[in-house]
Amino acid sequence: MQRVNMIMAESPGLITICLLGYLLSAECTVFLDHENANKILNRPKRYNSGKLEEFVQGNLERECMEEKCSFEEAREVFENTERTTEFWKQYVDGDQCESNPCLNGGSCKDDINSYECWCPFGFEGKNCELDVTCNIKNGRCEQFCKNSADNKVVCSCTEGYRLAENQKSCEPAVPFPCGRVSVSQTSKLTRAETVFPDVDYVNSTEAETILDNITQSTQSFNDFTRVVGGEDAKPGQFPWQVVLNGKVDAFCGGSIVNEKWIVTAAHCVETGVKITVVAGEHNIEETEHTEQKRNVIRIIPHHNYNAAINKYNHDIALLELDEPLVLNSYVTPICIADKEYTNIFLKFGSGYVSGWGRVFHKGRSALVLQYLRVPLVDRATCLRSTKFTIYNNMFCAGFHEGGRDSCQGDSGGPHVTEVEGTSFLTGIISWGEECAMKGKYGIYTKVSRYVNWIKEKTKLT
């Protein structure tokens, strides 16, 4: 034993070699072989497995989906700052455009905790909710729209109204504003409101030439003092309507412009014939205590009207009353817009006519005020429907199939267009061939041609 100890002390290297040989010859039971080890760690190889990531292109799944990435790591994937920024906006807080917040056709661009709407022409605001041009839906104005110097929408209202708090709607500024039905039992019968379409306001006024200088022999019209197929109006439903009495009662109609003036057809009036105007009328054979009678003290036909040349060209006249009318729910003026808007309103496509005229061709006159909704007829169809001249200051309205029309005794009465609950004068009943005849239409004086003249002559002093 002493000898062994001496050998170990003198030859430590020998001992180490012996131990190493023993270990190498022993069977290893701690580690699995290569094949079995792979069965336990069965993990798919990654895209760049075996390579240094710093030297390969980034992978979106590896960089940002398996674990949260930084902007720089995302930049490695896209290799483009702009594309990385677009991805980053949604990656950080989701897609803010998912709810489609942009209105009126706006395009949404996502941002971090926010979004941006790219608005089409005519709109602005956070969600493109603000109209900035009158060309689109009248700028959301209830009545009139004008573009300011910086191309912003400025709404306005006709006389007797003021802008509401929203700067879009119009509200009454006087007790009985024009064009409004205020009798409670008839307010439910107000005709369907007309909503502004998209309009090209630059070209809204037709490029028409008034044929002022045409000389033409007097034409022989049949029954051209021209509501057939209409309905009984309720008291106060058309408070701007008046009836004219002269040699015979209810020979023509008219509309209240203001307390002192009536507008009617020029062919209705004769110099030297006494005319009485009755406002607030409903049943011409009954006294309903809503009527107001006034005498006409002055007749002003349009300066281009000449019955000797043509009885229905420039067929418009103004009547001055001896005493002002007292405005109330049964006696209310009709609204008159400017030339541009009167023309736009007419193009809405349908209007209402009213009167006490004959209820059928050569038949009896109506006792109760009649009204009828009539569609506008395109000019080409209008011209083809008659052998008589249709001037540019006239328009056609009615039904091709016949059966409904204005008729004798309705002449001078109103053709009105309702705009968001307020009625505007767009025409004056003038003439036609018979009444409600198939293929024939009622012919009306186009008020847009005469609004400046009306307003100039009827100013209240």
Rank of each mutant, 00 (worst) to 15 (best):
V4G: 11
M6D: 08
A9I: 09
P12M: 15
G13M: 10
T16M: 14
I17Y: 12
C18R: 03
L19V: 07
L20T: 03
L20P: 03
L20V: 10
L20M: 11
G21S: 13
Y22N: 04
A26C: 11
T29C: 09
T29M: 14
V30D: 15
D33Y: 04
N36H: 10
A37K: 00
A37I: 07
K39A: 12
I40D: 03
S49Y: 08
L52A: 15
E53C: 04
F55Y: 09
G58Y: 05
L60F: 09
M65W: 07
E66W: 03
S70T: 09
E73A: 15
E79F: 09
R83L: 11
R83A: 15
F87N: 15
W88S: 15
W88M: 15
V92W: 10
D93P: 05
Q96N: 09
N100I: 04
N100Q: 11
G105T: 02
K109G: 03
D111R: 07
D111M: 09
S114Q: 11
W118M: 15
W118Q: 15
C119D: 00
C119N: 02
F123H: 06
F123Q: 03
K126D: 14
N127S: 06
L130W: 07
D131K: 09
T133D: 14
C134I: 02
C134A: 02
K137S: 11
K137Y: 06
N138F: 03
C141F: 00
C141P: 01
E142I: 04
E142W: 04
F144E: 00
F144L: 03
C145Y: 00
S148K: 07
A149W: 06
D150Y: 07
D150N: 09
K152Q: 08
K152E: 06
V154S: 09
C155W: 00
T158Q: 10
T158N: 05
E159T: 09
E159H: 06
E159V: 07
R162S: 09
A164S: 07
E165S: 11
E165N: 12
V174W: 05
P175L: 09
P177Q: 01
C178H: 01
R180K: 12
V181L: 10
S182L: 05
S182F: 08
V183Y: 10
S187V: 10
T190Q: 11
A192L: 13
T194V: 13
V195M: 08
V195C: 05
P197S: 12
D198I: 09
D198S: 13
D198V: 11
V199A: 05
T209R: 09
T209G: 11
D212A: 06
Q219R: 08
Q219C: 05
V227I: 12
V228E: 10
G229W: 14
K234Y: 14
P235V: 07
G236C: 02
G236A: 07
Q237V: 08
F238P: 03
F238L: 06
V242F: 00
V242L: 02
L244E: 01
G246Y: 06
K247Q: 11
V248H: 12
A250P: 08
V257N: 01
V257C: 02
E259A: 08
I262M: 01
A265E: 00
C268D: 00
V269P: 02
G272C: 05
V273D: 08
K274T: 08
I275G: 03
T276N: 10
T276A: 08
V278I: 05
I284P: 06
E285Y: 07
E288A: 07
R294Y: 02
V296G: 02
I297N: 05
R298T: 09
I300E: 05
P301F: 11
H302A: 03
H303G: 07
H303N: 09
N304M: 12
Y305L: 02
Y305M: 02
I309G: 08
N313K: 10
I316K: 00
L319W: 02
D322R: 03
V326L: 11
L327Y: 08
S329P: 14
V331D: 01
P333N: 04
P333V: 00
P333E: 02
I334P: 01
C335L: 00
I336K: 00
I336G: 00
A337K: 00
K339R: 15
I344E: 10
F345N: 00
L346H: 05
K347P: 00
V353K: 04
G355Q: 13
G357R: 14
R358P: 08
R358N: 08
V359A: 13
F360R: 14
F360S: 14
H361Q: 05
K362H: 11
K362D: 14
L367A: 13
L367C: 08
L369F: 12
L372I: 14
L376M: 14
R379G: 05
A380C: 05
T381M: 12
C382S: 02
C382H: 02
S385L: 11
T386E: 07
F388H: 14
Y391D: 12
M394L: 08
F395V: 02
C396E: 01
A397M: 02
G398C: 02
F399S: 13
G402L: 12
G402Q: 13
C407H: 05
G409Y: 12
G413A: 13
P414R: 00
E418P: 12
E418N: 13
V419H: 10
S423M: 13
S423E: 03
L425N: 02
G432P: 14
E434Y: 12
M437H: 08
M437S: 14
G442V: 12
I443A: 05
I443N: 01
I443L: 12
Y444L: 05
K446N: 11
V447F: 00
S448P: 02
E456G: 09
K457N: 14
T458H: 01
K459L: 08
